[in-house]
Amino acid sequence: MSPGMRGTPPRQAAQARSAPVFALVTLTLIGAALAAPWLAPQDPYDLANLLLDHARLSPLTRDEAGMLHLLGSDDQGRDVLSAILYGLRVSLGVASAGTTLALAAGLTAGLCAAWHGGRTDAMLMRLVDLQLSFPTILVALMLMAALGQGPDKVVIAIAVSQWAYYARTVRGSARVELQRDYIAAARGLALPTRRIVVRHLLPNCLAPVIVLATAQMAAAISLEATLSFLGLGVPVTRPSLGLLIANGAQYVFAGQYWMSLWPGVVLLATIVAIQQAGHWAGRKAAGGGASR
């Protein structure tokens, strides 16, 4: 067993080849979510469509009305494909709202820590360390227990459990940028603090944060799905992918797998595609040298 040192280039090359595929899948999924009302064969929120005699039809069967259920129907008689498209909308919506909020909070905290330094910095970073030593799911569960359920609460839970990652990253790059000449020049011109931070410092710290945001977006989707699966997330009337999986789970034991399986496949595809696309973007940003 000799410690092999075969070069890594082939693997990177393979990743570079598959990366555009992941980016394409991501865009397709986002497009499908946005266009759900036009793409979906049925409106799953329309109570008129909840017919129990259409319930739990297997994939590729037609109901009495002659409608073809490509992926079957669920226990309420909803078309699974339609429910997935609308569910994807909810999942992506909640996750991106949570990610945006976390990003905003993290950016503010990170810039604040880097700009003020000293005690502010030490306190904020101690808080970040503390938060990061607990898993996100625990933080999220604690919040859901305190706040109760609902999409807005999930958004808050995502933001609270993720802001620390952004804060740490932003602080790191902001501290590097603060050493550079252009900041000294801006300070020399006695520009107002707000202007230096927003117009000069912020744009130069964004690249690593955007990369992180893509990875965190995947994590946010997973977190929302998990909370909804536990029944602590979005309401049953407007199910996300996670809740669809939960609803179908009880029928899995009866062999009626499709109600859970297909939403799960879409969920997994979404997470993997976004994560890989982000990974690729990160490598590009890192490999592209100084991003200025």
């Binding site: 092999g4 040192m5 082939p10 693997r11 998990t226 699966f229 859970s260 997470i271």
Partner: peptide, 28 residues
């Protein structure tokens, strides 16, 4: 130790996938 070997690459690829799988979905 076997870096670059196809089986090593497959292991790492599966690990990346396992990373993305929500726990409840694996369970189901």
């Amino acid at each position: 130790f076997a870096d670059g070997h196809p089986a090593s690459r497959a292991t790492l690829g599966l690990a990346t996938l396992g990373f993305s799988m929500p726990t409840f979905w694996i369970a189901l």
